[in-house]
Design a protein around this nucleic acid. Structure first.
Lengths: 156, 156
DNA sequence: CTCGTCATGGATGACATCGACAGGATGTTG
DNA sequence: CAACATCCTGTCGATGTCATCCATGACGAG
């Protein structure tokens, strides 16, 4: 995991359709060497997968909210129940004001309400607290840090 | 935007390295037709870009926190200041208990503290409230809804 | 009927993928 | 200390697959 690997990851985060020839040229390597490095990055799990970024509004998910869920029992097993709700994009166990924090996208506030009803039907859910997003400044991928003091290209 | 487009998006979300031939076979189209549909999905902005998903832990971002920021002035202009902090992955204006909600990944709690210090240096920031994530159940992409009543394949 | 939309199939050039080989760093042994 | 073995990582070239483009045909709406 050196600087070249970091550059490759950065380039692929920007645009994963780049050819290996272009990647190699950008980092000063042959296309074969670039290919080999990317293959290893995938193999080691540093690159989990290559995917496609979908516009939430165009996909009919224009309403974004973060919902904190409080439970009256141990909530370690609610993961699967939450996963079956497609509108829930993320779910984390948190330390602090609640047990679980979820990120929910719905087509309307009305559908958001329907999702909350489904959440309440999960065993152990006692309270929810909803934070509605009014405007998204930005959403970007994980930043891969370079060596200390180096200039930092920002994702997206 | 019909069912075939939705299937194509779903398939590409799973694995954007699939060949157009494979995509076409999966949805019952020729490779050319699949290619044309995907091209239009990109053109219309429904598919924003194809990118690579990086493992946060391997990238040295093992600590995840959500930080709510409260300001004593209008915070519509803080977007750029927040964007220059690479550890901040998302920033949203919210309705409710604070002005802005951010998602922050750091290498350690110590570095999280350093990021919070940088946040406080932004003009207008008055208070922050940090929610530390203990365990992530899942993080997945936007779910593209199908027609009502149809069976729902879940992302990831 | 006629136009517009959408899919098919084939041709072509670019690209991923793989194998063989070279150079350099590191470690081992006489 | 020198000579050699080994490993890692790179370049180069060959081959098969694939993206991409275009001509053609089918279908449906006005």
């Amino acid at each position: 995991m050196d600087d070249i690997d970091r550059m490759l990851i950065g380039l692929l985060q920007e645009d994963a359709t780049r050819s290996y020839a272009a990647l190699g040229a950008a980092v000063g390597l042959s296309s074969g060497a670039a290919h080999e490095r990317v293959r290893k990055l995938r193999e080691r799990g540093l690159i989990r997968r290559t995917t496609v970024e979908v516009d939430p509004v165009a996909a009919g998910r224009g309403v974004l909210a973060y919902v904190m869920i409080d439970g009256n029992t141990w909530m370690g097993d609610t993961a699967e129940a939450l996963r079956t709700i497609p509108e829930i994009e993320e779910a984390h166990v948190i330390a602090g004001p609640a047990s679980v924090l979820t990120k929910i996208r719905a087509s309307s506030t009305r559908e958001l309400q329907a999702v909350l009803r489904r959440v309440f039907e999960i065993d152990g859910v006692a309270r929810t607290q909803t934070v509605v997003v009014l405007e998204t400044f930005f959403e970007r991928g994980v930043h891969v840090p370079g060596p200390a003091g180096a200039p930092e290209p920002l994702p997206r």
